[in-house]
């Protein structure tokens, strides 16, 4: 049994102009200790999926269908208090902006101690020494002094390290990292990703890494899910998806990564833009931009079809299967 199973998850927003579907029949699995990358453009539903898993969808967003299971137990319909005990303890989270993720009025030590004591019955002194241990582990220099410093006394990269320490403080089995490096300098990004990767491997923590950086995925993830307009376009082992993309969208994404040292007049891009949630076309949501679209793509929506070690939501795959 997988650690986390998301089964046909559907997230909707009730607005004045009707219901918007931000996440549409998304199914994925994360095994114990596995790193699943989730990529896609802004608005593809990556963060929404993450928020739904930790039960922190902000109203008017809500889970309208599907199931989320941790160890086979449903967690999407738990009462707030029960879900609260899972958050932090079983499923941790790291958000995009380390500058705003920490409460400015408490020292990092206070925030760590509070989190540790929320999830385990330890005394103040024990919690503090555990906090110090965590700060050392995430590579905060002179941690014994820094523990009493306030967030504004740390740089962006250091704050993200503190955030990682906080997310790991109760030893969760899964961490949802929602664009953990987007707000950081490029040079810091690599350090943070390496740190996250090392810590999760050491602790055996699974990670759902939400990002729009294919490079980060290639380096870090075991498997990758490509999302487009609220649906999974392609999911599979990272090497397969990157080297032999089957969905034309994934193919386009890979093609648009510039290669260092190669002279090009124009950078490759996918024509057009992702549709708004209010105007998702019939059939495959990608069909207006797809160079290989045919009639069926404009009429019927493809569901993920098993292909190799992964799944692809594209009629081309079905066609190939018929011909082959």
């Amino acid at each position: 049994m997988a650690l986390l199973e998301v089964d046909q998850l559907r997230v909707e927003f009730l607005t004045r102009n009707g219901t918007l579907t931000a996440v549409d029949d998304v199914s994925l699995k994360i095994e114990e200790g596995e790193v699943l990358g989730v990529v896609g453009e802004s608005g593809a539903g990556k963060s929404m999926t993450g928020n739904a898993i930790i039960g922190l969808l902000e109203p008017p967003g809500r889970i309208a269908g599907g199931e989320i299971r941790l160890d086979g137990q449903r967690i999407d319909n738990l009462p707030y208090e029960k879900m609260r005990k899972i958050r932090g303890a079983e499923i941790g989270a790291i958000f995009q902006d380390p500058l705003t993720s920490l409460n400015p009025l408490y020292s990092v030590g206070q925030q760590l101690v509070e989190t540790i004591r929320t999830h385990s019955d330890v005394g103040l002194a024990a919690a503090r020494s555990r906090a110090l241990e965590l700060l050392n582990e995430v590579g905060i220099p002179a941690a014994s002094q820094r523990i009493d410093h306030f967030p504004h006394q740390f740089s962006g990269g250091m704050r993200q390290r503190v955030v990682i320490a906080l997310a790991l403080s109760a030893n969760p089995r899964l961490i949802i990292a929602d664009e953990p490096t987007t707000a950081l300098d490029v040079s810091i990004q690599a350090q943070i990703i390496a740190l996250l990767k090392r810590l999760c491997r050491d602790h055996g923590t699974a990670v759902m890494l939400v990002t729009h950086d294919m490079g980060v995925i290639a380096e870090t993830a075991d498997r990758v899910a490509v999302m487009y307009a609220g649906r999974i376009a392609e999911i599979g082992p990272v090497a397969d998806v990157i080297k032999h993309a089957k969905h034309p969208y994934t193919d386009g994404l890979m093609g648009s990564i510039p290669v260092v040292g190669q002279q090009t007049e124009r950078l490759a891009q996918i024509e057009g833009a992702m549709p708004r949630l209010t105007a998702i076309p019939d059939g495959c949501a990608f069909n207006p931009r797809c160079p290989k679209a045919f009639d069926k793509c404009r009429q019927t929506r493809p569901d993920p079809i098993a292909s190799g070690a992964g799944e692809v939501a594209c009629w081309l795959i079905e066609q190939e299967a018929h011909h082959g």
Binding site: I54, R84, R87, G88, D97, S101, L102, N103, E114, T115
Partner: peptide, 21 residues
């Protein structure tokens, strides 16, 4: 704010989030 969302994501109790943070 993000730090309230993060406080919730860490599983802090409602009263800690509302009053402490």
């Amino acid at each position: 704010t993000d730090y309230i969302k993060f406080a919730r994501a860490r599983g802090l109790s409602n009263s800690a989030v509302h009053f402490g943070h």
